[in-house]
């Protein structure tokens, strides 16, 4: 009986397991295998052992792209989280037009990042760009090495705020009103209520938003590529996913690109584990009163 149940369970899981194996496990294994090959996409593949690892370790551009990505994440994640939470608090007050704003906030997230990147490139163009025309000054938003990364980060934050806000709105609505009312009766002001009641109870949402946000921001490619192709001025927007792309499909060094992809994967797993451990000690999923 038990073994028949097990068989049935595996049978029912089979389609999903196939998907996981074919589109998750296999690609990971292929990337690891490619990391041990020298291949230019056109000629034959050659097994080179750890040569690609050594080459990547000696290539300063990869280290630079890791640093650029870390700075990018450090700008984007706090900004999109704070702005997303702020937007969610406003939307949750049930003011007139909240439903319309909820849709408006999410629109940039729905749109294709590449298309948004192209539109923003027009807006931020130094010559004939909409923003410069508006402010009456010629500022090189995307080609000045100092401004390029913050500008790209700002566009990314703008794209993501609605998505983040959507989850915070759901999290806020899951907080029992009785807890907030009890705080009110106990004399807590709005700030105390937010800090001592709302924020701790939002931790499951915060955990989800931070984990998915950090992963997707570490992997950002499309919008950065559209805004500042080839790594931007002096490589200041040369994010890791872009470096992997340039290495694989422009320099045609597939093996080295695969090594970079593996490093990024390991890095993301490590960061996610740290986040998980931190939140697991501080988060409650039990909101019952």
């Amino acid at each position: 009986m038990r073994s028949r149940d097990t068989r049935t369970a595996y049978l029912l899981l089979a389609p999903s397991l196939f998907g996981v194996a074919a589109f998750l496990v296999l690609p990971i294994l292929v990337v690891v295998w490619l990391a041990l090959q020298r291949w230019d996409l056109i000629g034959p593949r050659t097994f080179v052992g750890l040569d690609n690892v050594v080459a990547v370790a000696q290539d300063g551009r990869f280290a630079r792209s890791l640093l650029v990505t870390a700075v990018f994440v450090a700008i984007v994640i706090p900004a999109q989280t704070v702005l997303g939470l702020g937007a969610a608090l406003l939307l949750n007050r049930g003011l007139r037009g909240s439903a319309v704003f909820r849709v408006l906030y999410v629109l940039p997230w729905i749109c294709a990042p590449l298309a948004l990147g192209v539109v923003w490139r027009w807006i931020l163009a130094p010559t004939d760009g909409a923003l410069n025309a508006l402010i009456g000054h010629r500022i090189e938003w995307l080609s000045d090495p100092v401004l390029a990364l913050p500008s790209v980060a700002a566009v990314t934050v703008w794209t993501q705020v609605g998505y983040v806000a959507l989850f915070f709105v759901a999290g806020l609505r899951a907080i029992p009103s009785t807890l907030l009312e009890a705080a009110l009766l106990d004399g807590a002001g709005p700030w105390q209520t937010f800090r001592l009641i709302t924020l701790p109870l939002l931790r499951p949402t915060l955990f989800f938003v931070l984990v998915t946000g950090v992963i997707s921001t570490f992997q950002v490619f499309d919008s950065v590529y559209a805004l500042t192709p080839k790594g931007g001025p002096q490589g200041v927007t040369d994010v890791v996913a872009g470096r992997i792309y340039y290495e694989a499909f422009e320099s045609r060094a597939v093996g080295q690109a695969a090594v970079m992809a593996v490093v990024l994967f390991v890095l993301l797993v490590a960061i996610t584990l740290v986040q998980q451990r931190w939140f697991s000690r501080r988060t409650t999923y039990d909101l019952s009163t």
């Binding site: 990337v31 593949r45 992997q219 490619f221 992997i244 694989a248 597939v254 990024l264």
Partner: peptide, 18 residues
């Protein structure tokens, strides 16, 4: 393009290259 998509391209390359 996210990394997963890059990995999918790599997988497709592998399968097709084989």
């Amino acid at each position: 393009m996210r990394l997963r998509r890059l990995a999918a391209v790599a997988a497709a390359l592998f399968v097709l290259a084989a």
